[in-house]
Lab assay of single mutants.
Amino acid sequence: QTQEFDNEEEARKAEKELRKENRRVTVTQENGRWRVTWD
């Protein structure tokens, strides 16, 4: 699953929550947008 964010702060917040659920999370930056991908 993927979700896009406008800034790193929001993306990192989402990453932190997903990691609490023991998910594999990848955060990438593309064209000024932050993308959080998880399984």
Rank of each mutant, 00 (worst) to 15 (best):
Asn7Ile: 05
Trp34Gln: 01
Glu8Gly: 02
Glu10Thr: 05
Arg12Thr: 04
Thr37Ser: 14
Asp6His: 05
Arg35Trp: 13
Arg23Met: 14
Arg23Thr: 11
Glu15Gln: 05
Thr37Glu: 15
Gln29Gly: 06
Thr2Tyr: 15
Arg23Val: 13
Arg24Phe: 14
Leu18Ile: 05
Trp34His: 01
Glu15His: 03
Leu18Thr: 02
Lys16Ala: 14
Phe5His: 02
Lys20Pro: 03
Glu21Gln: 14
Gly32Asn: 06
Asp39Tyr: 13
Val36Asp: 03
Glu4Ala: 05
Asp39Thr: 09
Glu9Asp: 11
Val25His: 01
Asp39Val: 09
Glu10Gly: 05
Gln29Thr: 07
Gln29Trp: 13
Arg33Phe: 08
Val27Thr: 04
Gln1Asp: 10
Thr37Cys: 13
Val36Ala: 02
Thr2Phe: 15
Thr37Lys: 08
Arg12Asn: 03
Asn22Ile: 04
Val36Ser: 01
Glu17Lys: 09
Arg24Ala: 09
Val36Glu: 02
Glu17Met: 11
Lys16Ser: 12
Asn22Leu: 05
Arg35Lys: 15
Gln3Ile: 14
Asn31Leu: 06
Glu10Val: 03
Thr2Asn: 06
Asn31Met: 04
Asn31Glu: 10
Phe5Lys: 00
Glu9Leu: 11
Ala14Lys: 15
Ala14Pro: 00
Ala11Tyr: 02
Arg12Trp: 05
Ala14Arg: 15
Glu15Ser: 04
Lys13Ile: 11
Trp38Leu: 12
Gln3His: 14
Glu9Asn: 09
Arg12Ile: 05
Asp39Gln: 10
Gln1Glu: 11
Arg23Ser: 10
Asn22Lys: 10
Trp38Ser: 14
Leu18His: 08
Lys13Ala: 14
Val27Gln: 00
Ala11Lys: 00
Glu8His: 03
Thr2Leu: 09
Arg19Val: 11
Glu4His: 09
Glu10Arg: 03
Ala14Glu: 03
Lys20Leu: 13
Gly32Arg: 02
Gln29Met: 13
Gln29Leu: 13
Thr2Pro: 03
Asn31Arg: 04
Arg33Gly: 04
Gln3Met: 15
Glu17Ile: 11
Asn7Ser: 14
Ala14Asn: 03
Leu18Ser: 03
Asn7Tyr: 07
Lys16Ile: 13
Phe5Ala: 01
Asn7Trp: 04
Glu9Tyr: 11
Arg23Asp: 05
Ala11Asp: 01
Glu17His: 09
Lys16Trp: 09
Gly32Leu: 04
Gly32Met: 05
Trp34Leu: 00
Glu30Trp: 06
Glu30Ile: 13
Glu17Asp: 09
Glu30Phe: 08
Glu17Ser: 10
Glu17Arg: 12
Arg35Tyr: 15
Leu18Asn: 03
Glu15Tyr: 07
